[in-house]
Design a binder for these strands. Structure first.
Lengths: 151, 151
DNA sequence: AGAGGTCGTTGAGAATGTCAATGATTGACT
DNA sequence: AGTCAATCATTGACATTCTCAACGACCTCT
């Protein structure tokens, strides 16, 4: 036949069986979709995830860094930006004066609500070919790897 | 009880249900594991993936860029480096003198063999809690998103 | 009171992502 | 045959992200 020339050319058997490679490429595709979904709100998936934690957790910056797997110095820049836009604020942790609690302002919470709706819509489209149970099974596996023993 | 203080603190309901977020974090974890696995061969997952395609496909640089979702200018740098190390070579495409075919040298193929074994060992550990059919189902889903309609 | 660790911050340098421009070449059209 | 738009590899520039080291302020333990 040899009619398979439209889509899946140039594939390497090794890479096509390499879960990490597929993970990396799928992640890049998904975050591109996510970035596009919230771009006109002035957000990226990166800032969106900071906002989500600020709304739902109110973590310290260290906890933020841990959860997002970012260096603490990057958290400083991200929080600086969102704070300058009035979307969140730094509070003193009453039990530890070194720590800064990151909490959303009402404006931040409102924007998060909008962003969340757009992200979830975009995701739904992206994963449309799969059933809800399939997707939840996928998430369960990803959670284990995502939050497993780091090294 | 409130004994759950060891591992899963500071989690946001929204992010924990966000497939893209889990994908990003799992991908970061997996590529860190992969990079460590081939570090002493002088490779990263990035250069490893170039080598894999050079061995198994012998694509043009444009095809390489497409498959790895990298800008063509990055391919230039990656191929330059691996070529300087004698692991692959650029050949004229006989049917198009603009294009350069990227093919592994014997040394490149040998190194790829070693790297592949290490990557696959590391992956096995990473995904150990899951069964083979589960992992293949995961890969099938990732493939669809990874190579789905780009925009 | 002092020692050693943690938290946020600053700064630096490397790696990666993104985009525009160019010379050589191709393919299509006249 | 000759022109023209498109494609390929390359170079260069710039933004974003990653990674690490150092620091002052603060905490905990003794």
């Amino acid at each position: 036949m040899e009619t398979d020339q439209g889509a899946a050319r140039y594939s390497s058997p090794t890479l096509d069986a390499d879960t990490s490679f597929l993970l990396a490429r799928a992640s890049a595709m998904a975050s591109a979709v996510g970035n596009r979904a919230v771009a006109d709100l002035g957000l990226k998936v990166r800032t969106y995830s900071v906002l989500a934690l600020a709304v739902e957790v109110e973590p310290s910056q260290r906890e933020l860094a841990e959860r997002l797997r970012l260096d603490p110095s990057q958290i400083v820049a991200l929080v600086d930006e969102l704070e300058a836009r009035g979307l969140l604020e730094r509070r003193q942790d009453p039990s530890d004066r070194r720590a800064r609690i990151v909490a959303a302002t009402p404006a931040g919470a409102a924007l998060f609500g909008q962003a969340r709706a757009r992200i979830e819509d975009a995701q739904r489209d992206l994963w449309a070919p799969h059933s809800a149970p399939e997707i939840e099974a996928l998430r369960a596996m990803l959670r284990r790897v995502a939050f497993g023993e780091p090294r």
